[in-house]
Nucleic acid binder design. Structure first.
Lengths: 341, 341
DNA sequence: TTTAGCACTCAATATTCTCGACTGCTAACA
DNA sequence: TGTTAGCAGTCGAGAATATTGAGTGCTAAA
C-alpha cells in the first residue's frame, strides 16, 4: 500500500510537524529531506497519504498535519527508539542509583528525571495496594493512646497509619494484637483486612469495641487509600506553542486536576509495556488534543507504580519513548527492594 | 481626608470590580448604589480618589479600577468579615469534625473545604518540623534488615522513615537503639539530631558503622525533608476572566509549580493572624497580578501548618477572609491532637 | 457643592484590502 | 507510467481604516 518513498515522506512530515508545530508544505519536504524529487511529486504523494487518512489539512490551501492515524503509524512503524544520548544515559544512571529509600521515592526520582530530560510534564502513582501479599503487620505503641499500624508487603511496600484511642493501651495488648493479626494475615493478600477479620479479632481478643473498631477502621482506610499522584513540570507544557490556545491550556489544567482521570489513565496498561494513547484514542474528551505515554515500574507481575508523560499530540515520541525504555530497564535492574533477603 | 461618601464610593467601586471584573464607571455607581447623587458628583469624587492613589484608569476614558493601595484600604478599613452563611458554617463544621487522624490530614481537609466554599485555588503545607520538641523516638524492626524510625513530637506530629541495612539487625539491637536515642533526645528540640548525636551513639553503642550511619542519615533526612505542598482546585482559577490572559495563566502555573516560592509564601506570617498579600506587596514578580491570603493552623505558639488561598488581585476578600477566620477558629477549637493526655 | 450638558478620548469591533504560502490540476516530458 | 514545470485558485494572516459607544473632564449654571 505505502511504498518506501511515501513512508519516508510521512515520517518526514510528522518529524517536521513535531519540530515546528506548523503545517508542513511540499516545498519544505523537498528542501530539507527529498532533494531528488520535485515538490509536485511530493504533493501527489501527500494527496495520496491524505486519502489514506494519515494526513489532514487545516484548510484547503494549507500544508499537511498528521492525523491520529498518521501519528499511530509513525509511532508503530516508522520510528526507531534509540534516541537517547550518552550524556542522558549517564544522567539517568546517576539519578537512579542508590538514592531512594523506598519504592515510592524511587518512582518519584524517576518521574522527575523523565521530565528533566524530555521537558514534558510527567506524572506518577505509587504501587497499587490491592493484590499485594502481607508479609508482616506490626502495631507500635506511641505514647499511651496512639498506635502506629504498619503493613509490609511482599514487594517491599511499607504502609503505615496512625490510630488514636480514647483509653490507654497497654504493651501486652499491643503484643496480643501483633500476634493475632500476623497469625491471621501473614501470607494473605491485603484485601483480607475486611469485616471477617474484624469478627475474628473480636472473637479471639476480648478487647472492647473502643479498641478494636478504630484499628480495623484505620487499617481498612489504609489499604483503600487513594494513591497519591506525583506531578512534575506542569509549567513546561505551558511553554509549548499549542498552549497559546486558552481552550487547550484550560483542558490541560483540568486533566491534571482531576485525580480520578489521572489514576484511570495511569492504572490501565500492562506491566512492562509502554502504553501510548494518542489524542482521542483515550475516550475522555478533555484528552482529545493530548497524548499520554505510560509505563509500569514493576518486578515480575508485581506492580510498583506507574510513570507517565502527558503532552500535546505533537509530542517527541521518539525521545520520550527512548528515554522511557531506558528508565524502565534501569528501574528493573536496579531494583534493590526485592533482592535483599 | 476621605469623607463618608468617598469611602462608600471607593468600597462600591471595589465591590463592583470584584463582582464584574470590568472597570467601573460613574454611571453604574449611581445606578446601583448612590441613587441620590448625580454621576457628575461621583466623577468628581472618583477623580479625587484617583489623585489619592486608590483608583486607576486603564486608559484615559475608561472607568476606574482599584489600585493596590485601593485594595489595601478596602481590606483594612472598608470591609467587615462576617460574610459567611449558616449553610457554610454547617458545612465547615461537618467537614472538620472528627474525621482526621493526623494533623496533616486535618489540614488537608480544611484546605479542600476552603477551596470548595470560596471557589478559589488553595494550598497548604504541613507543620514545620524545626523547633518541635521530641516526645518519643521509636525504632521498629521490619523483617531482618529494615527498620522504621518514628519520631513523635509535642504537637502530636508523627514522622517516620524507612532505614535499610546490608546486614541483619537483632531485636536486642533495636531495644538498645530505642533506649539510647530516647535517653539522649526526649524533651529536646528535633534539631538535636545532628553530628554530635552521631558521636554519642557511636561512643555508647559499639555497633558497626554500617548500622549507625544509615540510621543517622535517614533521621537527619527525615527532619530536613521538604514539606509537602497540598494543592486544591487549580482548575477553579482558570475559570476566572483574568485567566483569559495567557501571560497571567502561565505565571499562575509557574507559581504553583515552584515549590520554593510556595513554601516561602506559606512560611512567612505569624501564628493565628490572617496574612494578606496584595499584588506586588509580595516581591516576587510572577505574583504581581495575584493576591495571597494565608493563615496558620496552630496551637499556642506551635505551628501545625499553613493554609492559603491564591487568586487574582480582584479576589472576594470579604468571603475569603470571613471563611478563613471561621475555619481558623474551628481548627483551634477542635484540636484533638493536644488535648488527649 | 452639586449638577446638566457637551466635547473629547480611546478601546473594541467590524470591514476591507493585500499578500503570499499553499494546493490541485493540466499538459508535457523521460 | 511516473515525474515535473507551470499556473490558476484558495484562503488565512496581518495591515489599514472606519465605526461605534462607553467613558471621562470640564464649564457654567443652580
Amino acid at each position: 500500500m505505502l511504498d518506501e518513498r511515501k513512508r519516508n515522506i510521512l515520517k518526514e512530515i510528522v518529524d517536521e510537524y513535531i519540530a515546528t508545530a506548523e503545517p508542513v508544505s511540499s516545498a519544505v519536504i523537498v528542501e530539507k529531506y527529498e532533494s531528488n524529487i520535485s515538490s509536485a511529486t511530493v504533493r501527489n504523494d501527500m494527496a495520496e497519504l491524505e486519502k489514506l487518512g494519515y494526513l489532514e489539512k487545516t484548510h484547503a490551501s494549507s500544508g499537511r498535519v498528521p492525523s491520529a492515524k498518521g501519528y499511530r503509524m509513525y509511532v508503530d512503524e516508522l520510528l526507531k527508539y534509540d534516541n537517547i544520548s550518552l550524556e542522558e544515559i549517564k544522567y539517568i544512571q546517576e539519578k537512579l542509583e542508590n538514592k531512594a529509600d523506598s519504592i515510592e521515592e524511587l518512582t518519584k526520582i524517576a518521574t522527575t528525571t523523565l521530565s528533566e530530560i524530555t521537558h514534558y510534564t510527567t506524572v506518577s502513582v505509587g504501587p497499587k495496594t490491592s493484590g499485594q501479599i502481607i508479609e508482616e503487620i506490626k502495631f507500635v505503641l506511641l505514647g499511651n493512646r496512639m498506635l502506629m499500624g504498619i503493613i509490609v508487603t511482599d514487594t517491599g511496600l511499607v504502609k503505615e497509619t496512625i490510630i488514636k484511642f480514647d483509653e490507654d493501651i497497654t504493651a501486652e495488648q499491643v503484643d496480643t494484637l501483633n500476634y493475632y493479626f500476623n497469625n491471621k494475615l501473614q501470607g494473605e493478600p491485603i484485601e483480607k483486612i475486611d469485616a471477617s477479620l474484624e469478627e475474628y479479632i473480636f472473637r479471639e481478643l476480648k478487647y472492647s469495641v473502643k479498641i478494636i473498631r478504630p484499628i480495623i477502621e484505620q487499617m481498612k482506610k489504609l489499604i483503600q487509600e487513594e494513591e497519591n499522584i506525583y506531578l512534575e513540570g506542569a509549567n513546561k507544557s505551558f511553554e509549548l506553542p499549542e498552549f497559546k490556545s486558552l481552550e487547550l491550556a484550560k483542558n490541560f489544567v483540568n486533566i491534571l486536576d482531576t485525580k480520578e482521570l489521572m489514576l484511570d489513565i495511569l492504572n490501565t496498561g500492562f506491566a512492562e509495556d509502554i502504553q501510548i494513547y494518542i489524542g482521542d484514542e483515550n475516550d475522555n474528551k478533555d484528552l482529545k488534543d493530548f497524548s499520554v505515554v505510560t509505563f509500569k515500574h514493576s518486578v515480575g507481575d508485581k506492580d510498583l507504580g506507574t510513570i507517565g508523560i502527558i503532552g500535546p499530540k505533537r509530542m517527541n515520541y521518539s525521545k520520550v519513548i527512548s528515554v522511557m525504555k531506558y528508565i524502565s530497564k534501569k528501574l528493573n535492574e536496579n531494583d534493590n527492594f526485592n533482592k535483599k533477603d
